[in-house]
């Protein structure tokens, strides 16, 4: 059953007519045409679909859009300020931290979340913060280097 609800994404309010059970990911990708959050498993096991819910990283592939309608949703598209990249985005470029890049969304969004909680996390905290995100190319060593570059 479709209903109309308000969703706040990257600082903009959207009015959407939609099945309220739809997982957030499909709303972001299909209705709002965002590319940041990606489909990886639909099971909250891989983190490709990570978004910030009220500033905290959370997978978007299972959580119903109805559940998050009162939360501030931020995707990878929303972490930069205008044309200035978030320092983590810049660090990923500087360290060339990607191979296929499919997991980069999950890694960056999780890293933003980690730094929000503690601006100078130790390595263990960083790793814990990124534990939910899988990378198959084996680029994790570069992600760690990029994040450490920002907190130095």
């Amino acid at each position: 059953m479709k209903t109309t609800l308000q969703l706040r994404v990257n600082g903009i309010s959207h009015s959407l007519t939609i099945d309220p059970d739809t997982p957030l990911l499909y709303v972001l990708r299909n209705q709002l045409q965002l590319n940041g959050p990606k489909y990886g498993c639909g099971l909250q096991q891989c983190g490709a679909c990570m978004v910030l819910l009220d500033g905290k990283a959370h997978p978007s592939c299972m959580i119903a859009v109805d559940v998050v309608k009162n939360q501030e949703i931020t995707t990878l598209e929303g972490i930069s300020s205008g044309n200035t990249l978030h320092p983590l985005q810049q660090a990923f470029i500087d360290e060339q931290a990607a191979q296929c890049g499919y997991c980069v969304n999950g890694m960056l969004v999780s890293a933003v979340s980690v730094l929000k909680e503690s601006p100078h996390p130790d390595e263990k905290t960083i790793r814990e913060g990124l534990e939910r995100v899988l990378c198959r190319c084996g680029t994790q060593a570069r992600f760690l280097r990029a994040i450490k570059r920002v907190i130095r």
Partner: peptide, 23 residues
């Protein structure tokens, strides 16, 4: 030389890059 891959910028900016992003 270690020349940067320009597509990494697209990836971190969430620009359309993958077949999954085609609409």
């Amino acid at each position: 030389k270690a020349i940067h891959r320009s597509e990494i910028e697209k990836m971190v900016k969430a620009e359309s890059w993958y077949v999954q992003d085609l609409r």
